[in-house]
Each structure stands twice: as C-alpha cells, then as structure tokens.
Amino acid sequence: MLEGLLGSEEFHGLMKKHAKEVLEMLLKRGVNFSILTNIADVTFDPALPSQISQNFKPITMFFLAGYTFESTQIYNGRISFEAGFGSDNFGSLVSLPIEAILQIIIEEIPVFINLSTPPKAAVLVPKETGIKRSMEALMSNPNNHNLIKK
C-alpha cells in the first residue's frame, strides 16, 4: 500500500511542487542550503573532466552558497547553478530536475525529504502484440466466434 502511494503520480507531483516551493523560499530569503541528489540525474555544461567526475558518489551533495547560490535558477521544472569543481575550480553549469532532489539541507538538518519514487513509465507494447492479445481475449469467449468473418 505504501509503495503504491509513494510511486503514484499524485504523490510524486506533490513532492515536486513542495520541493520547488521550498527552493524558491530559500532563494528569496537568501538562505544557503545543500541538495542531495542521484548524480545520474545531474547534467554538467561543459562536461566535467573525468578526473573530477570519477570522484562523485552515486548520491552526491551540492552546497549552494556564494556565487553558486547567486547563480541558482529554477525554470521548466529544473534547478540550475554554476559551480567550480576540483583544485582548478573547473566551472560548469549544473542542472537537474527538481523531482531528482532527495533532500534539501540547511546547516546539516534536512528540511525537505523527497519520499516519492518516480512513477513507472507505461510499458509500450508493440502494436502487433497488442492486437494479438486483444484478439485472444475476444476469442476466449466462444460466443464471440461468430463475430469474425473467415
């Protein structure tokens, strides 16, 4: 039951909306914060050199303060910010979907925890397979045999 709720479109939408509202409030108030996210959901432009990107853990925290905080924008369901990485402070635009944020943290305290799991995408059934399954279901009732012209 819980899994069905956490994976529902409705709950996922609420978590996304709430994350966006929390982010907007923190940005408006000038409160520095961290976000915890799955690194697979993050894009970097330009791409980071491999000697930097190989050091990221699957779940990575980004601290938004100073110029990184000031460059933060929320648009089209994404959050983006400019950040420097590595000893050479390699600059890149970091971007990720808001729903990919697992936690928003202020002073080491989580103020937002995203408990939703992304709704599973509908499995696409090839047209021929779908027609075959429909026909099999129709023909499983003996009373429907006279509907098909042979």
Results as ranks from 00 to 15, higher is better:
residue 2 L to W: 11
residue 22 V to N: 10
residue 135 M to S: 05
residue 114 N to P: 15
residue 53 S to Y: 09
residue 57 K to P: 04
residue 53 S to H: 08
residue 100 A to C: 06
residue 8 S to G: 07
residue 62 F to Q: 02
residue 94 V to D: 01
residue 26 L to W: 09
residue 51 Q to P: 03
residue 62 F to K: 01
residue 62 F to S: 02
residue 134 S to P: 01
residue 46 P to S: 12
residue 121 A to Y: 15
residue 109 I to P: 04
residue 3 E to Y: 08
residue 34 S to I: 00
residue 91 G to A: 06
residue 86 G to R: 08
residue 57 K to E: 15
residue 75 Y to C: 02
residue 28 K to Y: 06
residue 2 L to E: 10
residue 71 S to P: 08
residue 96 L to E: 04
residue 12 H to F: 15
residue 33 F to V: 02
residue 46 P to H: 14
residue 147 L to R: 06
residue 67 Y to G: 00
residue 28 K to A: 04
residue 87 S to A: 13
residue 120 K to S: 05
residue 42 V to G: 05
residue 64 L to A: 08
residue 12 H to G: 04
residue 87 S to Y: 10
residue 85 F to Y: 13
residue 10 E to D: 11
residue 59 I to M: 10
residue 63 F to R: 13
residue 70 E to T: 03
residue 58 P to S: 12
residue 60 T to V: 11
residue 84 G to W: 13
residue 23 L to V: 11
residue 109 I to M: 14
residue 90 F to G: 00
residue 137 A to C: 07
residue 9 E to W: 11
residue 73 Q to R: 15
residue 27 L to Y: 05
residue 42 V to S: 05
residue 74 I to T: 04
residue 150 K to L: 07
residue 41 D to V: 00
residue 79 I to F: 14
residue 118 P to K: 09
residue 77 G to N: 12
residue 46 P to E: 11
residue 75 Y to P: 00
residue 95 S to Y: 03
residue 110 P to C: 04
residue 65 A to R: 13
residue 67 Y to Q: 05
residue 140 S to H: 15
residue 83 A to V: 01
residue 54 Q to N: 11
residue 74 I to Q: 05
residue 67 Y to W: 06
residue 105 I to W: 04
residue 141 N to G: 00
residue 59 I to H: 06
residue 127 K to D: 07
residue 113 I to K: 14
residue 147 L to T: 01
residue 138 L to C: 13
residue 73 Q to I: 07
residue 7 G to I: 03
residue 118 P to W: 00
residue 53 S to E: 07
residue 31 V to D: 02
residue 5 L to R: 13
residue 127 K to Y: 09
residue 106 I to F: 07
residue 82 E to N: 14
residue 44 F to M: 01
residue 4 G to L: 12
residue 149 K to P: 00
residue 27 L to H: 05
residue 94 V to T: 08
residue 101 I to L: 12
residue 132 K to V: 12
residue 116 S to Y: 08
residue 97 P to D: 05
residue 81 F to H: 13
residue 82 E to H: 12
residue 127 K to R: 10
residue 16 K to Y: 01
residue 121 A to L: 15
residue 103 Q to V: 02
residue 73 Q to A: 09
residue 89 N to G: 00
residue 18 H to V: 09
residue 23 L to H: 11
residue 9 E to T: 13
residue 1 M to R: 07
residue 55 N to Y: 15
residue 101 I to K: 13
residue 98 I to T: 03
residue 129 T to P: 01
residue 88 D to Q: 11
residue 91 G to H: 07
residue 111 V to A: 06
residue 57 K to Q: 15
residue 48 L to E: 08
residue 64 L to F: 12
residue 108 E to H: 13
residue 55 N to V: 06
